[in-house]
Measured scan of single mutants.
Amino acid sequence: GLMCLEHEDEKVNMYCVTDDQLICALCKLVGRHRDHQVAALSE
Score class of each variant (00 low, 15 high):
Asp19Lys: 01
Cys24Gln: 00
Leu41Cys: 14
Ala39Ser: 12
Thr18Asn: 09
Lys28Leu: 06
Leu41His: 14
Glu43Ser: 11
Leu41Val: 09
Cys27Met: 00
Tyr15Gln: 15
Cys27Val: 00
Gln37Thr: 09
Asp19Ala: 00
Ser42Thr: 12
Glu8Pro: 14
His7Ala: 01
Glu43Gly: 09
Val12Met: 09
Leu41Met: 12
Asp19Gly: 01
Ser42Arg: 07
Leu29Val: 10
Asp35Tyr: 04
Lys28Met: 07
Cys27Arg: 00
Glu10Thr: 06
Leu41Lys: 13
Ser42Ala: 10
Met14Leu: 09
Lys28Phe: 04
Glu6Ala: 08
Val12Gln: 15
Ala25Phe: 05
Arg32Cys: 09
Cys16Ile: 07
Ile23Leu: 10
Leu5Tyr: 09
Leu2Ser: 15
Leu2Glu: 15
Thr18Met: 03
Asn13Met: 05
Asn13Lys: 11
Gln37Cys: 04
Ala25Cys: 08
Leu2Tyr: 13
Glu8Thr: 15
Asp19Cys: 06
Gly1Pro: 07
Glu43Arg: 09
Glu10Gly: 04
Gln21Ile: 07
Ser42Ile: 02
His36Leu: 01
Glu8Ile: 07
Leu5Gln: 06
Lys28Asp: 09
Arg32Lys: 13
Cys16Trp: 00
Ala25Arg: 12
Val38Pro: 05
Thr18Pro: 02
Met3Cys: 05
Glu6Lys: 06
Arg32Thr: 12
His36Lys: 11
His36Asn: 03
Asp19Phe: 05
Asp35Cys: 07
Val30Lys: 14
Leu41Pro: 15
Glu6Val: 06
Thr18Arg: 08
Lys28Gly: 10
Leu29Trp: 05
Glu8Phe: 07
Met3Asp: 10
Asp9Leu: 12
Ser42Asn: 13
Arg34Trp: 02
Asp19His: 02
His33Asn: 03
Asp20Gly: 08
Asp19Thr: 00
Cys16Gln: 05
Gln21Arg: 11
Ala40Thr: 11
His36Ser: 02
Glu8Gly: 12
Ile23Lys: 04
Gln37Gly: 07
Lys11Val: 04
Val38Cys: 12
Asp9Thr: 05
Met3Ser: 10
His33Phe: 02
Arg32Ala: 11
Ile23Asp: 07
Glu10Gln: 06
Leu2Ile: 14
Arg34Asp: 06
Ala39Gly: 12
Gln21Met: 11
Leu26Phe: 15
Leu22Pro: 15
Leu26Tyr: 09
Thr18Tyr: 02
Tyr15Val: 10
Glu6Cys: 02
Asp35Pro: 04
Glu6Arg: 04
